[in-house]
Design a protein around this nucleic acid. Structure first.
Lengths: 343, 343
DNA sequence: CATTACACCTCAAAACCCATCATCTTATTT
DNA sequence: AAATAAGATGATGGGTTTTGAGGTGTAATG
């Protein structure tokens, strides 16, 4: 008999083809396809697999019948030279190579930094084919709108590192940034040993909630506990090393009694370079992101502490959130590194 | 048709086929497939292999059943009122209730503290039926001897929190304690703002390597970076709150210029009580173990920092080590908590 | 109108789950 | 070495679930 199996060039496959391929009877295929009970899970999977192989089911039908397909996850990060984000991208690649087969398919795109439009567009563009999107959020109506839209289509979203404010249905994986800012303030205050002077804030952008929350926490604790320190207004360095370098040089010149700097954003390399060049290792400096350059800066004494959120934990939690939206979203642990406890 | 080979084009294989191919009875196949006990590991593997060859199992089922039978793991902790160790025991119980079926069977015994004999005996007693033992080590020849013996019988061992020194075949899961001691020294040195004075060390017992390593690290950094601080010799408080309380009272009386205390051991409650009662919140105090009492002490300002190793991570890693002795044994991350970043 | 694909049902056979008990093996003790 | 204990396997049977075979009705199609 000629029929025997699927027919790549010809007819649409029939239930009988699926039955044959799965090695079960028509009755069982019928039960599976119509979600009737009385089918053992193992058989169900066989049938579903056969159906998938024959292309009998559309993707949506497949999903409806619960064929466990690895999720398609997209990660959207700001482009630019921020070393922490580059490290995050690298860990992501590493995870891909490890996880290989059964893990979710992860893809990472770098979006033009600080552009709400670009991010919104990227969200919409990926909503179609991705099952879930993890994104570094920019707080902007355009983004919030796009996120709400995308979430409504069923694509799961999770913000990482920086959130969108409280948008229902979009969990966040990241630090408790206000507390982080307060911790930085506490350390600078205590390290400065009670002497009066100025402390300066450097940020990437106020449109990152992570940054403005850290700023707020820092300001609140300075006011509360260290009145002898005055805070020198925040400067936006757009997570750019060169820009941060210029800001720092200006600071050092304009603020003679500068005691400390807290960089709530990334790319601390520009700041350490300025401090080093000006021989101002006495300035207490705390920044974010455990990377090669910050490690070196802490070891040589230019930087006093690194605040970090472990990239692997971050990705784990983001993926867990996308897999199961019911995952409770307690904040990540803040890792603090000094010269003596670098890993 | 007597051949007995699989039949790719024909009927689906049945359990009876698996039984025949594995050369066992249906009852045994059933026991394996339903994860019932009473099957020798070798037989289990034969059955699984037969099932695999016949294509009886789907990939996911194969993974589920192919995993080695959950290990029987015993955890040995020092008895006593040390809150961190009690918390560890509690997390262990929590993990049991969660993991339920497929997780390893964990059992926790509390051994008379500071008794090498008791620990050695417990190791030997459990070696018979446990697949792996995780134990808080006491560095003592009696223990090392017992550990080597037990390891030789095939029971896997891993030391947690405090290790045995370098004994081949017994990996360790815990902090890099020398670095931890140096970090404590760094913080006390910097918090003290350059003023001269004395810093004191309190420990549980010198027989815990964790404690003496932390001490060594602390001493080394004091000497290196903070010559204006003199270290007041270590006192052993046996992780007992009352004893630590008495030690602290004595310290406060005998050392008028006391600037800081570092408790390398547990049960910091006694120390905070003494500091609180004597109104000496100005003394910088760093201790180990994030528990209810240390949290409170940090919040009220009696304690300046808590060093912690996350109990869940600790247990995860210990279990991983016992499951797969090839697991690389990089040290745990040190978690540092100040008043502002308590979880 | 005959044909085809399929949803939905019933029924009996087959496969399977689960507990029990007897038998055999292996290790431990005496 | 014999006795004993503990564990592993096989045999069996009752109850449950799963499956295959086949019937019926419907809608689409040529």
């Amino acid at each position: 008999m000629g029929d025997g199996g699927e027919d790549p060039a010809g007819e649409r496959p029939q239930q009988s083809d699926v039955a044959a391929r799965a090695g079960v009877s028509l009755a069982t295929v019928d039960r599976v396809l119509n979600r009737r009970k009385g089918v053992k899970e193992r058989t169900r999977q066989r049938v579903l697999e056969a159906a998938r192989e024959l292309g009998f089911l559309s993707a949506s039908e497949e999903a409806r019948l619960g064929a466990a397909r690895p999720l398609n996850i997209v990660v959207l990060l700001p482009a630019g030279a921020n070393p922490y984000l580059r490290l995050l991208g690298e860990r992501l690649r590493a995870r891909l190579e490890r996880g290989g087969a059964d893990g979710p398919a992860l893809r990472c795109f770098f979006i033009e930094s600080f552009s709400a439009q670009a991010l919104a567009e990227a969200l919409r563009r990926n909503a179609g084919w991705a099952d879930g999107i993890a994104f570094f959020a920019i707080e902007h109506p355009v983004v919030r709108e796009a996120a709400a839209e995308v979430a409504a289509t069923g694509t799961r979203l999770v913000s990482i590192v920086s959130d969108l404010g409280s948008v229902p249905g979009i969990p966040h994986v990241g630090l408790a940034n206000r507390a982080v800012g307060r911790t930085a303030g506490l350390l600078i205050g205590r390290f400065s040993g009670g002497s009066a002077g100025a402390v300066a804030l450097v940020a990437g952008s106020r449109h990152y909630r992570a940054h403005s929350e850290r700023e707020a926490g820092f300001l609140s604790i300075q006011e509360e506990l260290f009145p002898q320190l005055r805070v020198h207004g925040m400067r936006e360095g757009h997570d750019d090393a060169a820009e941060n370098y210029r800001h720092t040089l200006a600071l050092l010149e304009q603020v003679p009694d500068l005691v400390g700097i807290y960089n709530v954003g990334g790319s601390s390399g520009g700041i350490t370079r300025a401090l080093r060049e000006q021989g101002r290792q006495d300035v207490i400096f705390i920044g974010h992101g455990l990377t090669q350059d910050t490690r070196k800066a802490v070891l040589e004494g230019t930087m006093d502490a690194i605040f970090d959120q472990d990239p692997d934990t971050l990705l784990d939690r983001a993926v867990a959130c996308l897999n199961d939206p019911a995952t409770p979203a307690r904040p990540l642990k803040l890792d603090i590194y000094f010269s003596e406890n670098l890993p």
